[in-house]
């Protein structure tokens, strides 16, 4: 056995790259926050959409990549968030912006009984079970005549006015998107750095580790599912305000809110924090160039996801990280040996 003396290595949680990345991220966030003063409304719209997908992908990745809960039904909570926001605004006169956190809270409460049902299904069956839940929500929404039934409803002008004039409305929706996108990323990052996060990662990487860490992983998964449901619903609420409209088929769309999100995470790198960011960038780039081709675009995304899953299951980021040892959001501890050339 090789022996190391204590002084011959050091342990750190950050890397130079991660510190630079952190600084750049903060500067970027500040510049973006000022976007309503310097950017066009088309840019605000696109950036808002980017934040939405980044947030959805980050949350889905937390479930699938770290806890093994592969949900094909997160659109349940996207739609629920939208419908709850509209209900609160239309029937109770709540300011739509205030309705967003309320919708998140309500959705998390609804997720409690839902979780106790779908958690009875194991592995892949959990995936389809979560899809059934989304279908149930969609069908119920289609029955809600007060909310336009199957064809949906637009936010009445009187309610839209509460969001202020056009500039202020667009700015506040953009800020919300930015806050949710950055917030979800920060939430997942901090969670994964915590003791719970380390336990989750350890369990994912090794079955043996789970018992020795003394964390009851079953209930952790349960709580995370509910938290993610609440956050996803807040994103859904935001989406409904971006569109100023909800309809069952759009709000509970499996393609828009789950298929694309899965592709983003798989392409970027499942089970890494950076993966969803890279994936979202790739997704938006592809979309800018190929969206006009409609079906071909989806065929391409599906094929790309399959190829990546088979050839590089850790996605673009995982591949790069393994090759070059990159890490922007270090969640583990790193041991550095001064005399070893590479690290």
């Amino acid at each position: 056995m090789t022996q190391f003396t204590l002084s011959s290595f050091s342990i750190s949680r950050s890397t130079t790259a991660s510190r630079i990345a952190g600084a750049i991220a903060l500067i970027l966030l500040a510049i973006l926050a000022a976007a309503p003063w310097w950017a066009s409304s088309a840019f605000l719209h696109l950036a808002g959409e980017f934040a939405v997908y980044l947030a959805l992908a980050t949350l889905w990745n937390l479930l699938a990549g770290y806890t093994g809960l592969v949900s094909v039904g997160q659109q349940a909570y996207v739609g629920l968030g939208g419908y709850l926001t509209f209900s609160l605004a239309l029937f109770l006169g709540v300011n739509p912006l205030l309705a967003i956190p309320l919708a998140g809270l309500a959705a998390a409460l609804i997720a409690i009984p839902v979780a106790s049902l779908v958690f009875r299904l194991q592995g892949a069956y959990f995936a389809i079970g979560s899809w059934v839940i989304a279908e149930v929500f969609r069908l119920i929404a289609a029955q809600a005549t007060a909310l336009g039934g199957g064809s949906g409803i637009s936010l009445p002008a009187a309610v839209t006015k509460q969001l202020g004039a056009k500039w202020l409305r667009e700015a506040s929706i953009f800020w919300l998107a930015l806050a949710l996108g950055a917030g979800c990323l920060a939430f997942v990052y901090l969670l994964l750095r915590s003791r719970i996060g380390l336990a989750l990662t350890a369990i994912r990487d090794s079955e043996v580790a789970s018992t020795s860490l003394g964390i009851r992983i079953g209930s952790v998964k349960h709580v995370l599912y509910i938290l993610v449901a609440g956050l996803t619903a807040m994103i859904g609420a935001l989406i409904s305000l971006q569109k100023l409209r909800v309809s069952p088929d759009a709000a509970f769309s499996v393609n828009d809110w789950t298929a694309f999100v899965i592709f983003i995470v798989v392409i970027g790198g499942i089970g890494t924090i950076e993966g969803p960011i890279i994936g979202t960038v790739v997704y938006f780039l592809l979309r800018e160039f190929l969206a006009d081709y409609g079906t071909i675009y989806l065929l391409l995304l599906g094929t790309l996801a399959i190829v990546i899953m088979l050839a590089a299951p850790k996605g673009l980021w995982g591949y790069a990280a393994e090759r070059f040892g990159w890490s922007l959001f270090p969640v583990g501890y790193r041991i550095t040996f001064p005399d070893s050339g590479k690290d």
């Binding site: 699938a64 995304l301 599906g302 094929t303």
Partner: peptide, 20 residues
């Protein structure tokens, strides 16, 4: 669990859009 699930999910999207 992930590879079969995600690959067959990709396959599903490919089949739908291919048929379309």
């Amino acid at each position: 669990l992930l590879p079969p699930l995600l690959v067959s999910f990709g396959l599903s999207v490919i089949l739908q859009n291919g048929l379309l």
